[in-house]
Design a binder for these strands. Structure first.
Lengths: 162, 162
DNA sequence: CACCTATTGTGAGTAATTCATAATAAGAAA
DNA sequence: TTTCTTATTATGAATTACTCACAATAGGTG
């Protein structure tokens, strides 16, 4: 709860507390996955597995899938699904930020909510539809980053990132 | 261009014109796919294939994939990728509308842009990041529709739709 | 009508993810 | 500290969503 998680040990302790609060056991795998996602945000499952294997050499990709899904379900991770990309994860949760994806190179950057909290959660409904009670508003911006814009100017037209 | 597409023949003629304008041949498969998506918006590839097969009994799912991708690339269809769901398609293009997904039943509804056109395309960038030139802003709202809200009140806690 | 080539059909292949079940280990209890 | 219970992880197979290569077909131009 308090923000004493400046050292690696402090982060681990904070995560352990969060895990126990959510009724989860504290395992090396979970802590390693959390640390890997914290180190490099917007990483894919494969990237996380590779990073975790530097510490826990035998962890399987399937276990990473299970851990990522579980940590997401208890709110310690946030899962994003960019277009034309496998799912990605980040430790920055509960702050209503969004993402920009470069259609040239696939780079993903965080974007704060452009219009504040409220408008994002109050869509205008078409006539005749039953309003839903909105919990999340995910905004995915797509465009060209500075590097790719420069490259496309000098050479060819932009390609869709795969 | 003009909006004379009120009858099935009129729609077909309008689509044929759009296809030719995009340098594409007019085929029964393409028209059938467009008609299927028009009839039921937000359908998956499998649903489209099933609908098309009522007319063109021998069309393969792979061909539907190819046709959907191609029609999307020339702007006749819009592809959306809701969380925890295969890609879906709709004929409503070029109007900057967004989508709301019910986490209970998976239902998808159209939502007009809450804050007008401009703010959606002007995210606020974090300090130190190179701004991208934004082309698209896709907003996906998640929440509970009226039906699911009622069910979750009377019985159990909400489940994630799969 | 014939030809050229875009489009479709067919089958195999791949990436991302899930499932079933056995082995392991976290944490409570003794 | 040790034991016990069961959540968690490991392993391997299976599934879903989608793509690719290439042969067959059919628009549409001349």
């Amino acid at each position: 709860m308090t923000d004493y998680a400046v050292t690696a040990e402090g982060r681990d302790a904070a995560w352990a507390t969060s895990l126990r609060t959510a009724g989860r056991r504290v395992t090396r795998q979970r802590l390693a996955v959390l640390a890997a996602v914290e180190r490099s945000p917007h990483t894919t499952t494969d990237d996380v597995a590779a990073a975790v294997r530097t510490q826990l050499t035998d962890i399987s990709v399937q276990s990473v899938y299970v851990v990522l899904a579980d940590l997401t379900s208890i709110g310690l991770l946030r899962r994003i699904e960019p277009p034309n990309s496998p799912a990605r994860y980040e430790t920055r949760v509960n702050d209503n930020h969004h993402h920009a994806v470069c259609t040239g190179c696939g780079r993903i950057e965080d974007v704060d909510c452009a219009v504040g909290h409220a408008p994002c959660l109050t869509p205008s409904w078409a006539a005749g539809t039953q309003p839903m009670s909105i919990v999340i508003a995910d905004v995915v911006y797509q465009g060209l980053c500075a590097d790719c814009r420069e490259n496309s100017n000098t050479s060819l037209t932009q390609e869709i990132h795969k």
